[in-house]
Simulated assay, not measured.
Amino acid sequence: MPADPIPHGASASGAGTPAGDARSGGWHSGDAPLRLAQTALRDVPWEVGVAKPDPVVVVDGVTRQFGGLTAVSVDHLEIQRGGITGLIGPNGAGKTTLFNLLTGFDQPNSGSWTYDGRSLSNLPPHRVARLGVVRTFQLTKALSRLTVLQNMLLGAQGQKGESFLGALLPGWRSQERANTEKAMDLLQRFKLDAKKDDFAGTLSGGQRKLLEMARALMSDPKVVMLDEPMAGVNPALTQSLLGHVKDLREQGMTVIFVEHDMDVVRDISDWVVVMAAGRVIAEGPPESISQNQAVVDAYLGAHHDAPLTVEEEDRVLAEASQAIAREEKVDGEVLQSDGTPRGETDR
């Protein structure tokens, strides 16, 4: 059985154990959610489909096929609450398709999944977001002809002025002011406040990633799913994005992110899930992944750096000899008895 994920007297968000309290092992301010996630997963076996101490998202038997191709086939997967879970795998492994399924942008052929015990199956994206599960995209979805601030305001939930009747009643203006203040606070945090009146289309690729992440936080989500947040971002902004992802965990959110850069994965992940050919082939802490032969083979191919055994080497040589013999036989058949190629007439 895994160890108790929450030290005595601490809450899941880290509140309840004073920073630096001797009973907490000398934690510092902002460390509690990180330590809680790591403690919760510390004794979890490195097995595919393993149960987590406090799962917030649970996937069961989800499959998605496109014609004859099975893009996703996940038997069972649990995501630990309050931690950062990295989802990795070679191109075409099904990572983004799984994101699309979990957030309502696509529907599976079979299976179900839950968030906080509530089924998300067959829910459209806007209802999934209202429940607290939001995502960003590998190719950012900022509305280019709206300003940065207007893009932010689109992410606010339950805006009274959006309905005809609500717009006629008092109160929506104060809500609009509160949303604007919240948006400006987030823009300042993401170093985009100076761009608030610029069109989103004028931002750099990295700034658009920051805007999309900031806009996602306007809805006060509980689970944030980031699809390759570092892709196409220059090194100067990469560290800033990494810091913001870690901050999400410090605020008690659950983060699931797709990434190819293993240095990034090792830096910020509490747990890593590896996919290949639509299936989950490995789970474990970051340090366990490089030790897993199935993961190494999925990325680099079997025997990529291991010498063949004597038996395997003999078999490969025998197959090569047979292939050469077949080629020589075919080449011999296309020659005439006198050795000239068939179809060639005397000159």
Rank of each mutant, 00 (worst) to 15 (best):
E311V: 04
E319P: 04
E333P: 00
I324N: 07
E312T: 03
E333A: 08
T309F: 08
E311R: 06
Q322R: 11
A320I: 05
A320M: 10
A320C: 05
K329E: 15
Q322H: 08
I324M: 14
V330C: 01
E328K: 12
T309S: 15
R326Y: 04
D305P: 00
E319D: 12
I324L: 13
V310L: 08
V330D: 09
R315F: 04
V316Q: 10
L317C: 04
E313A: 13
A325K: 13
V310D: 10
L308V: 01
K329H: 09
E319C: 01
V334P: 00
A306V: 12
P307L: 04
V310N: 07
E327A: 14
A325L: 10
Q322D: 14
A323G: 02
I324G: 04
V330S: 08
A325M: 07
D314G: 00
G332A: 15
G332S: 15
L308S: 02
L308F: 04
D314L: 13
E311P: 01
S321K: 15
A325Y: 02
E311M: 03
A320G: 01
G332M: 05
V310G: 03
A323V: 08
A325H: 12
L317T: 09
K329L: 12
A320W: 02
R315D: 10
K329N: 10
E312N: 03
E333R: 07
I324E: 14
A320R: 12
D305C: 01
L308H: 04
D314E: 13
E312I: 00
V330Y: 07
E333K: 10
T309C: 06
P307A: 07
D305L: 04
R315S: 10
V334S: 09
P307K: 08
I324S: 06
V310P: 12
E328M: 11
G332L: 06
L308P: 03
L317N: 11
A325T: 13
A306L: 08
R315G: 00
E313Y: 09
E328R: 15
E333Y: 05
A320Y: 07
E311C: 00
T309D: 05
E312A: 11
A323H: 07
D314M: 13
A325D: 11
A318L: 08
L308C: 05
A318R: 12
L317E: 13
A306T: 15
A325P: 07
G332V: 00
E311K: 03
Q322K: 14
A306S: 13
R315H: 09
E327N: 11
T309M: 06
D314P: 00
P307S: 06
Q322G: 04
E319H: 03
V334Y: 05
D314Y: 07
D314R: 15
K329D: 12
E319V: 06
G332Y: 05
A320D: 10
E313L: 10
L317P: 01
V310Y: 04
E319L: 13
E313N: 11
V316W: 02
T309Q: 05
S321F: 09
S321E: 15
Q322E: 14
D305G: 04
E311Y: 00
V316S: 02
E313D: 10
A320H: 08
E312K: 09
E312W: 00
V334L: 09
R326W: 02
L317V: 11
A306W: 03
D305N: 10
T309Y: 02
D331Q: 15
V330H: 06
K329I: 06
D305H: 09
